[in-house]
Nucleic acid binder design. Structure first.
Length: 254
DNA sequence: ATGCCTCAGCTCCTGAGA
């Protein structure tokens, strides 16, 4: 069984690329972020024709998340229960016995801003809720665009980005606190090429120069870690014409 | 350079992303 996450930066623009990718990477679950579509505009027919059922939760202009699944998705929850949020960032469902949380974590803009404070509050609420979900669902996976790096290995220029957004100690504290619930960073369960990133700026030929960040993650519960056999970053879609600035992360479990 | 690209939209500039 395979799970993947991909921030597509507008599903309206990227739909053909997502369909192409699914045709060659027929994963069981694909979590999308930054669909940037209101729910009435979600292209569910295109996914149905491709053999995927969809659950979606969007809004105008920004944010928006979805889960594409081969098998039916049940117990669907949108956003974080108990956390009042105007922004569409989280979608959760049970698929083939696995609790799947797809999330678009807040960017946070810069330390000291209102958006950074919102990111901290959001992270706190997410953690409380993930803890509850883990108690109810031993087989659990939290994947998406975290907008946080774990450490210097996730950053092309650790010195230049020290204490900058995605790399602050406060953000990393919250990321480690999620792990401390009993989750595992899938990618690092397996050997990876050095300088493995999931996002590259559109500017300055950043992808060609591999000036990137690893900010898209798949965290898995202990029960799912025991089943994991591979985790990879697929850089191929970043080479497309009009690519998303993010590229998919893929987890394989037995 | 509070910029460099890219995307959405009250669209020919601005806000936001990361």
């Amino acid at each position: 069984m395979q799970f993947a996450t991909w921030n597509v930066n507008s599903l309206a623009v990227r739909l053909p690329q997502v369909l192409d990718w699914l045709a060659t990477n027929p994963v069981d679950v694909l979590a999308l972020q930054e669909t940037k579509l209101t729910d009435d505009k979600f292209p569910h027919d295109a996914f149905t024709q491709a053999g995927y059922q969809a659950q979606w939760f969007g809004q105008k202009t920004y944010n928006g998340v979805a889960l594409l699944t081969k098998a039916p998705a049940t117990e669907v929850v949108k956003n974080i229960p108990g956390f009042d949020d105007e922004l569409a960032r989280v979608i959760t469902a049970t698929v083939q016995g696995v609790r799947v949380i797809g999330a678009y974590f807040p960017n946070g803009q810069a330390p000291g801003t209102d958006k950074f404070e919102y990111k901290m509050e959001w992270l706190k609420s997410l953690r409380a809720w993930v803890k509850e979900e883990m108690a109810a669902h031993p087989q659990l996976l939290l994947m998406g665009d975290y907008n946080i790096t774990f450490d210097d290995d996730d950053v092309w220029d650790p010195q230049g980005m020290q204490d900058q957004i995605h790399c602050t100690e406060e953000e990393r504290y919250h990321l480690r606190a999620l792990v401390a619930l009993g989750l595992h960073d899938s990618l690092r369960l397996f050997p990876q090429p050095p300088k493995s990133y999931s996002w590259w700026d559109y500017r300055d030929m950043a992808f060609r120069r591999n000036r990137g960040l690893r900010i898209d993650h798949i965290l898995v519960s202990e029960a799912l870690r025991a089943r994991a056999t591979a985790c990879t970053i697929d850089k191929a879609p970043r080479k497309n014409e009009r690519p998303s600035d993010h590229t998919p992360v893929v987890l394989t479990v037995a």
